[in-house]
Design a protein around this nucleic acid. Structure first.
Lengths: 222, 222
DNA sequence: ACAAAAGTGTTCGTTCTACACCCATGT
DNA sequence: ACATGGGTGTAGAACGAACACTTTTGT
């Protein structure tokens, strides 16, 4: 039992983990194993422990519930409407993360019955205010993709230009001319060319993130 | 007394209020009237009450401690290092706000001994991690000024082109060519020309934010 | 052999940048 | 009268947008 002089809210984190399979964008959801909303789909997340930062908490809960250990994870908004959780006052710090969907095995642990990828445009009904958290994360992603090279976190180390373009188009909702897109990317200096496809035809040239970018923190933390 | 089954952190808000006097940028600080850090300077802010959102809390505390009621106030980061407050675990949701410095009277109320503007490049020693919160708010401002027309919140309803330019230069840390700057602003469509200075000389042309922009929420909330 | 996907250059319009002079006001 | 600050236009460079054809691979 914990006793305080003034009332305190519970604090939780929720994470919107985006994944890409070469075609579509997905979000990682869990089926809740406990009340409230037992049996419905929700974002992975949970309550803050006494000695961790919210970032620690988001990472811990993600790993416990789904096995995911994203490289890139960032907080983007606090949801604090008093009625957002029917049990008690819960304030949620929301994060978004980008992972290579292929790169880890889904594990359902803990109080998550199972973890599962859902296509962003075929989401099931969601617990709490999680639908609006996802909406909000999408807007954030659309905003931030112009500022930092985060799209690469969704792709394998080596990727092709059309794959990269697809990611940009899905995130921004616009479409781009193939040649202009490739030129702009190439001249921006963040790409390294791994293996060129020589002639012209259906084989794909492989690119990767330039090393200078990959390990320069200023690109990622602004 | 409040009793919970699991430990909970205290949740507070802290606000970085920027002001502009025609020359320099300022931040609104209070002198703490209570321990810890009694007598030193700090950001206005305080603890979340049971039935308010973090936005409500930030507004309430700002008004109580300084009298400020900013039009534009937005959360930007959660600071959650367990040791950031010596008393107990306090998690802080940080906000930044922009006000017309001329437009309100400073009032010191509550547990603030007094409220006062400090120039951004002559800040006193600050309580807690408030120095780094301010640093972080500045970076945020630098980032967001390219996306939304928030600079106008620092200026009077009517303002001159050189004043507007000064705000941009202070926030971004760059300087711009007068003519290019004026052209870009004029052609961006967010300005309305109030009174043109006819000839050319030292009288200033007055501008204001275009009405369409002023009351179109999409410009402000993205 | 046909359909689907990937590679490749050029032109044109727009935007950005750099730059110099004149006038009005206050001291 | 002089210093300060504000107004104004143009030319060249960089950037962004639009556009068609050829090759390869899989069916």
């Amino acid at each position: 039992m914990f006793i305080y002089k003034y009332p305190r809210p519970s604090v939780a984190t929720d994470s919107v983990v985006f994944g890409f399979d070469g075609r579509e964008l997905f979000v990682l959801l869990i089926e809740r194993g406990v009340e409230p909303f037992k049996g419905s789909w929700a974002l992975p997340g949970g309550f803050l422990k006494p000695d961790e930062t919210v970032e620690d908490c988001a990472r811990r809960e993600l790993e416990e519930e789904t096995g995911a250990r994203p490289e890139y994870l960032e907080q983007f908004h606090v949801f604090s409407k008093p009625s957002r959780d029917p049990r008690t006052r819960v304030l949620s710090v929301a994060f978004y993360a980008l992972v290579r969907k292929s790169e880890f095995r889904l594990i359902a642990g803990d109080d998550a019955a199972k973890a599962c990828w859902y296509s962003l445009d075929a989401l099931p009904p969601l617990a709490f205010d999680h639908a609006s958290i996802i909406e909000s994360a999408r807007r954030k992603l659309r905003e931030v993709i112009h500022t930092r090279p985060i799209a690469f976190k969704l792709l394998d180390k080596k990727f092709s230009m059309p794959e990269l373009q697809r990611v940009y188009e899905l995130i921004t909702g616009q479409s781009y001319d193939r040649r202009n897109f490739a030129r702009k990317m190439s001249s921006s200096g963040v790409l390294a060319c791994e293996e060129a496809a020589p002639g012209s035809g259906r084989q794909k040239t492989a690119y990767s993130l330039a090393k200078e970018v990959f390990d320069d923190d200023s690109f990622w933390n602004l």
